[in-house]
Amino acid sequence: MSPLLTVDDLKVSFPTRTGVVEAVRGVSFTLGRERLGIVGESGSGKSQTGRAIMGLTPAHARVTAKTLSFEGIDLLSAAPKVRRDLRGKRIAMILQDPKYSLNPVMSIGRQIVETLTRHEKVGRAEARERALDMLEAVQIRDPGRVFDLYPHEVSGGMGQRAMIAMMLVAGPELLIADEPTSALDVTVQLEVLGILDKLVSDRGMGLIFVSHDLRLVSSFCDRVIVMYAGKIVEELAASDLANAKHPYTQGLLNCMPAIGSDRHPLPVLDRKPEWAL
């Protein structure tokens, strides 16, 4: 089976007044129809990796790669039109905070319908029908009512479900979720993750799950990539996390205060300069 996505030596850099900032420095991986987690601290380049795949890197940044291809399409040399058609239709992205990522002056229903009509020839009635079905699939109890609500009228958990509905309505093959639950309450997080998990496995999508929470990622994904300073320091199966070799991965795992483990003070990461080489 050929992979859905091939990333080879991806680099993203930003020219600034004080010199070039290299956010991603040679990341390589392949993705099939599986769940891949990308973990790291802020500034490790995990989000920029996701954005480069999606084609959302700011115009002044430089993106280079030996290969960056999605189902045989070379993303870097593809025409803007091709990329626009991919975005939303075949590759979709869920962002962190529904408060900022939904359009505040457009009802939730219209935003979902917009995704659909942009990519498919559908009538208004059919588009509405499919949007309602999708809202139901993300377990919104009263889809008819939520369809006409504006983003400020719903809770964070509801907003994030609407976001998932919007991203999945066109049936993408690859979903990039950038910290999809970090802005949500702990209790709501699990519900949203449960919904996401079910939809991803039912539809056989590929998923890239970007997060700083190693434990959450490992419980959700099949495979985990750990990033530090723009590079991959370790790649391992989620089930294998206990045997992580790199001190950075071990540090990330250990530094979380857990219920029932009495460790004072908490172990902290001792960042070694050679990790960033």
Binding site: E41, S42, H212, L252, C255, M256, L266, P267, V268, L269
Partner: peptide
Amino acid sequence: LDASVQAEVLNLLEQ
């Protein structure tokens, strides 16, 4: 804060 930085700040507060 990030999980790794959280540990440092929690340690500081305890201290």
